[in-house]
Amino acid sequence: MTTFAASSWNFDVPGAPVEVLLFALFAALAIFGALRVVTASDPFVSALSLLFNFVSLGALYLMLGQAFVAISQILVYAGAVVVLFLFVIAYLGDRRELAADAVRARALRPFALLGVLALMVTLVAVVITADFPKLAELHDTAAGFGFGSPQAIGETFLGTYVLAFEVTSLVLLVAAIGGIVLGLTGRARHDRLRKLMQTRSADQQKRLHESEERKLKSERGVGTT
């Protein structure tokens, strides 16, 4: 094994207990993290638990001999996604409870739970009964790069998957547009609201509110005529 072979362990030794132990540890951590995300009542705890999940998945990727994916996992998920979540949760303060209403009727919840359990049983049964493909021998790529190494990934990414590489940039542009548009709308209204809250009497507040409404209408502009 070429990647990660620099370390002192050799993962290819059959029956090496250290790998079984590591797998058990990280699998347990990943499941624990995922369960905490779903069960915690505080979104802050959920987001932190997700970190456990992400980091243990990164470790599992490393054990599968895929160093570059593992590093990306840590950088992108733990470094960016979780931080973004924590930032938004802190920013929203006590307004974290926003009903998402994915399942509308409460009466449907037991069925949703049953459905999910059925899904888990089915998937695990599929994995157990499936004939897994034989483990292929690891070879260096044609250019001589090791399995899972950044060079080999780059070769595939900019070779076969160059279209996906290019289109990903467009997806990121769309996400940036979305973030800015939605964030700016919220921000502009928030500022107006703060001005509103700073005034003291209810009468003042009402007058200011009305003038704000007028200003908003005039900003909205031509449509009203």
Binding site: I31, A34, A47, L64, R96, E97, V103, L123
Partner: peptide, 29 residues
């Protein structure tokens, strides 16, 4: 020594836990 089907089995369990979260929790975050 850890066969790949263990990893896939783990991923199936995680997938179901995630699906449970989407379907059962009401908090958007």
């Amino acid at each position: 020594s850890v066969a790949v089907d263990w990893y896939v089995g783990l991923s199936a369990v995680l997938f179901s836990i995630g699906a449970a979260g989407v379907l059962l929790r009401r908090n958007a975050l």
